[in-house]
Design a protein around this nucleic acid. Structure first.
Lengths: 224, 224
DNA sequence: GGTAGTTTTCGAACGCGTTCCGAAATTAGC
DNA sequence: GCTAATTTCGGAACGCGTTCGAAAACTACC
């Protein structure tokens, strides 16, 4: 974090910058990996870089922007698996990679809704899904609808599960667990029949199961 | 917000409460409807009730708790439509009601991931989905998986769309619009083929379309 | 009436994201 | 060299959610 000697002529007028977007992102990554994303604040980041807090705002628009760019950094490191040649399986594989990669970055959930995805370097996964859909006989419109559905489903799953995981850490009771015990069996017969098993059933990871259902259902009513 | 004269004997020991959960929620609702959810802060709320800020923390655990309870209040007002008798259509109708009700409360997105749903008064929608699935031949396990998939998909759709809507308000450019113009057609052929139409295609509301695909795909591989 | 126990209130303080605006440090033109 | 333009820096301040702890207001019991 040492200020290195700059070239005497710096092409542009104005006060020379003491830091850069690149340095900020590197430091942010360091902080996230060292202390967790919860501890990442602009003030800490500025302190780490030995820079005024507001200085950061000349390089990133706001904290969300920072996190999005950080996500982009990580997205470049996602290793790209060999996608299957069958269209349907290609869709499933790309979506699963997308999901698992994001699930492996627990801090990412805070910005998941921000952008359709993780940046240019991760578009190959979108391509895998859209291309698979087209190869399976979908029109471009249907392919985009399919991709968006997968994205919604994936984001929802990640956010809801991350939230309930955080709750469990804080030892706050999960709301539903209490409600499902004493249900009015005449008004809500099926829920009452499930009863206590609800907690157990919602604990299971069923991402791929739902994904398969969604993809198969989408491909079933494609044109031609 | 006047302190009304209390009965001389108050059953419980301790300093008498100057406000109640009920009053807090009512005031919060007022603030939300008057100034929007963005302006709802515990400080404003305390000022509205003429009460110290920290006093609120004896009636609600934190702001998220407040919003969840607020959501529960609103959920009671969701009018309950006649659900179709066909299992599949019943699922679709219940899910659509769930989605549309939440979409009509734009402030609700801030807590959507918090709970599986909107409180006890809205369980009839869950019952509609789970019951429909069971009536269609699903096992209880499959029914719960189906419900959770719908919930993930719905939450994801609401959050992503709410986020991009907020972006549009702030006049921040949507990231993807810029990226999709110049794509490497050799690496990402299908995305390049779609090109500029991406923005237009993602603008459309395709919730029900995806929902139908998901439900049909789930029901297709049910037991028996 | 006094004292103990209980519950609620609320001011003070912390760290946070963000905005404002004047100061500082550089280049370009004279 | 001087001045103007330009760009970045960073201190001060705002409102926010949240925590802490001491004081207040009540009941119950002696």
């Amino acid at each position: 974090m040492e200020a290195m000697p700059r070239p005497v002529t710096n092409s542009r007028p104005g006060r020379p910058a003491v830091t850069s977007r690149e340095q900020i992102l590197t430091a942010a990554r360091l902080l996230v990996e060292r202390d967790g994303v919860q501890k990442l604040s602009l003030r800490r980041l500025a302190a780490e870089l030995d820079v005024g807090v507001t200085t950061l705002y000349h390089h990133v628009r706001d904290k969300e922007d920072l996190l999005i760019q950080l996500l982009g950094h990580y997205a470049e490191q996602i290793e790209r698996p060999e996608l299957p040649s069958t269209p349907r399986d290609r869709i499933l594989a790309a979506a699963t990679t997308m999901h698992d990669s994001l699930a492996a970055m627990p801090w990412a959930v805070e910005v998941l809704t921000a952008d359709d995805l993780l940046g240019e370097s991760a578009l190959w996964m979108v391509e895998g899904i859209v291309g698979g859909a087209v190869d399976a006989g979908c029109s471009p419109e249907q392919a985009v609808v399919l991709y968006r559905g997968i994205w919604y489903y994936t984001v929802g799953e990640l956010l809801v599960r991350a939230h309930s995981a955080r709750r469990r850490e804080d030892e706050r009771p999960v709301y539903r667990d209490n409600v499902f015990s004493g249900l009015d069996a005449s008004r809500l017969p099926h829920l009452a029949a499930i009863g206590d098993r609800w907690a157990e059933l919602t604990a299971k990871d069923t991402y791929v199961e739902g994904l398969r259902a969604f993809v198969d259902g989408s491909l079933a009513d494609r044109s031609r």
